[in-house]
């Protein structure tokens, strides 16, 4: 799976969890907070994305991530590490 596909999964859950947001509104260089997400919404997007992508990262390691793009990178790194094991 490449980064585009991971980003598509994350974006799907952002759209599902945040109201009044269109696909075209989302800029990966921004934080979900820029779109009105609170901490609990972000946790939900992270949890749903990890479940679909079958990724297991302690959520607590994700607390410092600033943008949607960084989140996708972190997921990609984890999937690559798993694949190499």
């Amino acid at each position: 799976m490449d980064k585009e596909q991971i980003y598509a999964v994350v974006k799907k859950y952002i759209l599902e969890n945040l109201e009044d947001l269109q696909d075209s509104d989302i800029d990966p260089q921004k934080s979900m907070k820029d779109y009105g997400a609170n901490s609990l919404d972000i946790i939900e997007v992270v949890s749903c994305s990890m479940r679909e992508l079958k990724i297991k990262i302690p959520r607590s390691e994700l607390a410092d991530i600033k943008t949607i793009d960084e989140l996708a990178d972190k997921f990609l790194a984890n999937m690559s590490a798993e694949a190499n094991q």
């Binding site: 901490s39 946790i43 949890s47 302690p58 607590s60 607390a63």
Partner: peptide, 15 residues
């Protein structure tokens, strides 16, 4: 502490 780390850790522990 850090509220966000705590919320994330809570969810890890719950799961």
């Amino acid at each position: 502490g850090n509220n966000e780390v705590s919320l994330y850790s809570y969810m890890d522990a719950l799961e």
